[in-house]
Write a protein that binds this DNA or RNA. Structure first.
Lengths: 399, 399
DNA sequence: CGGATTAGGAAAGTTTCTTAACTGAATGGG
DNA sequence: CCCATTCAGTTAAGAAACTTTCCTAATCCG
């Protein structure tokens, strides 16, 4: 540990291999001279490097490029089969799973219903993995699994904290249990954190280094990406704003540790439903209630509009604390309830927020399609697998 | 920009030089074989490297080590004169300044009174620098200046924001103005942020990667070190919790943008003084009032004790929001008012905080001596100057 | 069909590190 | 008091990575 990098010439090769692989990953198929130019290496070195990466199975030839004056160039691309990742999204009713190759292309998906089951966690995860692998006949075993779940893993205790309601997941050393049971490295990550990763890669947060994501459905949660990295906090609880003291809500001290309190009590799904009900709008879920209110307000219903305004200002109060503390570039709004509010709710929250805090970051609605937790789990897994695969080219088994 | 590191063999030398210099910096004088062992390099390479660094003036011989069996070893150490840094702490009444060598040893200090002056900023800074340099006769010009000040530089606008009351500092492009006027690179940094850096280097936050520092005197402020790095925020306003909405205080919307509101209104110096006054304790400043209340409570004064309890719970409410959002490993309390409260106030705030939030980080009182803003400015300057000096060994003028 | 242009490759050379062997100076035990 | 041991420092040969230079091969275009 005293010597992170020995400083030997082979370190150079590792650095350059990595740079080349990253370039291939991000800029699609490339010719040898192009890779040389991007990495800053000379032509012969680029050639030699590609030969080596090709032999290692990380890179494959992908046709030629013609049409330019001069000799036709051979195009290289990352070998998609260089490594696979599995991603799971676990809730109390189902597990969605996906397997992707190293480029991020989904090769298999599966959905496993788990209605009120109490069974073994390892068995359920294995079943979800098996399902996804069955949908991708040719693919070899994934190198690791990332599991998205409501709750956060406390790095100190190794247990899942922050209010998970999923039976069977409160194991003393969850990562080791799963890892040994499955025979692969496992990561467990908070679902909202994963949504933030998906949003950074594919969504409206692309290109931002500091942003806050607010998730609002029946529960409230947030995720922080700061300095380009996901901020998890010392106990995994960063962004767990549901229990943050909020203006106009009882505190934990007043309500008790396990009762509803704080921001959640003020603006969580049930609170929003009851606010809207008081303004004459009903809905079976928070999202439906909000959608109904938006529709009614759009048709000129003054009461519904006032109800939405009340919801917006409640949300803005909690958001204001987060914004005052971290001063993000943007705030991303997502989650069923917030998305149901659409542009109308977004604008209301934004105006209210900007009246409450000195920093005035823009609020952006998520535009992601599909399951964002699963997409985020794929992202996290790809980061790790690429690190592993791209770093292990130099050959020789590391002691 | 596409090629952060060309990947040429000379990169290796740069990496190894850096590692050796850092080892010398952190582990005092070292022999050639020791440096070899630490950096992972062979004996001949270490020898050659030290010869080069010696020729470049970055490293000097510092006696020999005897007493061991075998030949006496020559000890090398960092050349303190390899670079100097200037640090300033600017308030509306005075400018304190210091100059240190690259090891952090202070070689000159100065204090310049600036009672209600409106004069030219550049002239004042130059005067403060001149004073510190006069106290260090032999030292050459510093390579850069770090200026600590109340307020934060918005990287977007280049202006100082967040309520500075120091006349003359609201210049359109402050960094360029100062840099051109002084002929050196200048950094301007928020004073509370600098205190956090000092606390991380010399204080109770040493060794922590994620912590929050709460500064309480007449004003309230905080600083965030997350993932080992100072988090400044998109507009430089991260940690500006004074204006954060807080339970029991008017909001910005209610009070108006420039009136007092939020956490500041609840627990800032003036608010604390009036709380204590209502409990029969008076003091000319917030710190004196708190010190008086602690003394009275220690002598059995029930009213004073209740007053302190009220102060603690007000502080805890705001702190709870910060803790819920970032989930730090520890919270450092500092600033005249909080330090005056000592262990008694700390324990009260801690108990209250732990009743309000799920994460329960320990609260630690600062134990730093001297001017922490100045110490932090030195730290920031040293980071940058070392980066500059250690990186520029390879020789040749970088284009 | 020939010139221009670019890709690919071979040969010689540079920079940086390593291993191995040697010299030299100090300690310390018989 | 001398010699074995131990460690610091140097020298020499060599390996690994990259460059520059030059040449050949393939394609486009007038």
């Amino acid at each position: 540990m005293t010597t992170p990098a020995p400083g030997t010439p082979s370190l150079l090769r590792a650095i350059n291999d990595r740079a080349a692989l990253r370039a291939l990953l991000e800029r699609g198929p490339l010719t040898r001279p192009e890779i040389g130019a991007i990495t800053g290496l000379s032509k012969p070195t680029a050639s030699q490097m590609l030969a080596r990466l090709s032999a290692a199975g990380l890179v494959v030839l992908d046709g030629v490029r013609e049409g330019m004056p001069g000799r036709t160039a051979e195009l290289y691309r990352l070998n998609p089969a260089a490594g696979y990742v599995a991603a799971l999204d676990v809730t109390h009713t189902r597990i969605e799973s996906a397997i992707t190759d190293i480029t991020g292309t989904v090769v298999g998906e599966h959905r496993l219903s788990t209605p009120r089951e109490r069974g073994d966690v390892v068995a359920k995860v294995r079943e979800a993995l098996r399902g996804a692998r069955a949908a991708a006949p040719g693919a070899p075993a994934p190198r690791r699994v990332v599991i998205g779940i409501q709750g956060a893993l406390d790095p100190g205790s190794g247990r899942l904290g922050y209010a998970t309601h999923i039976p069977g997941w409160h194991v003393p050393d969850l990562l080791a249990t799963l890892g040994e049971g499955l025979g692969l490295p496992v990561d467990v990550e908070n679902d909202v954190n994963l949504v933030a990763l998906a949003e950074r890669r594919h969504g409206v947060a692309r290109g931002y280094h500091d942003f806050v994501l607010l998730w609002g459905d029946s529960g409230l949660g947030s995720a922080l990406v700061l300095g380009g990295r996901l901020h998890r906090g010392a106990t995994g609880g960063a962004g767990e704003v549901g229990y943050m003291p909020a203006l106009g809500a009882p505190t934990m001290r007043e309500a008790g540790r396990h009762a509803i309190h704080g921001f959640q009590a003020l603006s969580g799904g049930p609170a929003v439903r009851s606010v809207l009900r008081a303004h004459g709008v009903r809905g079976a879920t928070p999202a439906l209630a909000v959608a109904g209110a938006v529709r009614a307000a759009g048709e000129g219903d003054e009461r519904a509009a006032r109800g939405l305004g009340e919801v917006a200002s409640r949300l803005a109060v909690g958001l204001a604390s987060v914004v005052a503390v971290v001063d993000p570039e943007i705030v991303v709004l997502t989650g069923g309830m917030l998305l149901a509010g659409g542009e109308r709710l977004r604008a209301l929250i934004e105006r209210e927020l900007h009246a409450l805090t000195l920093p005035r970051p823009p609020l952006l609605l998520s535009t992601l399609e599909g399951n964002p937790v699963l997409a985020g789990a794929v992202e996290l897994g790809l980061d790790k697998v690429r690190e592993e695969v791209f770093g292990a080219v130099a050959g020789g088994s590391p002691s």
